[in-house]
């Protein structure tokens, strides 16, 4: 019994202490001129799909639920978002060269078509981020036309 008590205290203390470790929150006040939605004329359905299903990890602005600001969840998310933005950041779309844009569009289409994105660890909590079949088709169609226009 005593052991259980000790363990619980230690856990609680560690949990409390790590809350003070700083994390860079991925949030910004303004939408940059290089944002995908500003650079391109995006149809409303595609706009919504990308915002709801992709922007949390692939832009400079994540909308965090409160529990995502708790440690160690926040650390885990920070890493995820860093990786996500490294591969694709919709906020800096305008800064990508045409070659890079085409390359990113290819990957976007492949990932969405195969259902690998948005990843399961995200959709398991954000149920509304699951992309419906018709929305998928709309995104693919839009991305195809965007790629051809480059």
């Amino acid at each position: 019994m005593k052991l259980v008590k000790i363990i619980s205290w230690i856990t609680l203390i560690i949990f409390a202490v790590i809350q003070f470790f700083p994390v860079n929150y991925n949030q910004s006040e303004t939408i940059p001129q290089t944002d995908f939605m500003i650079v391109n004329k995006v149809p409303a359905t595609v706009y919504k799909t990308l915002h709801v299903s992709c922007y949390d990890c692939h832009s400079n602005n994540t909308s965090y639920p409160w529990y995502n600001k708790l440690q160690p969840v926040a650390w885990y998310l920070e890493k995820h978002i860093d990786n996500g933005k490294k591969d694709l950041n919709f906020s800096v779309w305008g800064d990508y060269s045409d070659r890079r844009k085409k390359s990113k569009i290819n990957s976007i289409m492949n990932q969405i078509e195969s259902g690998e994105m948005p990843i399961y660890s995200y959709t398991v909590i954000h149920r509304n981020a699951i992309i419906s079949k018709s929305d998928k088709e709309a995104v693919i169609k839009y991305m195809t036309s965007l790629k051809d226009s480059l």
Binding site: I6, I14, P72, W75, Y76, K79, I119
Partner: peptide, 22 residues
């Protein structure tokens, strides 16, 4: 024993926080 327990907990937390998909 307490020291060992603490270090195990710390290790567990560290490994949790450094987990990533790739």
């Amino acid at each position: 024993r307490k020291v060992r327990l603490t270090s195990i907990m710390v290790m567990a937390l560290i490994s949790l926080s450094t987990m990533s998909c790739k």
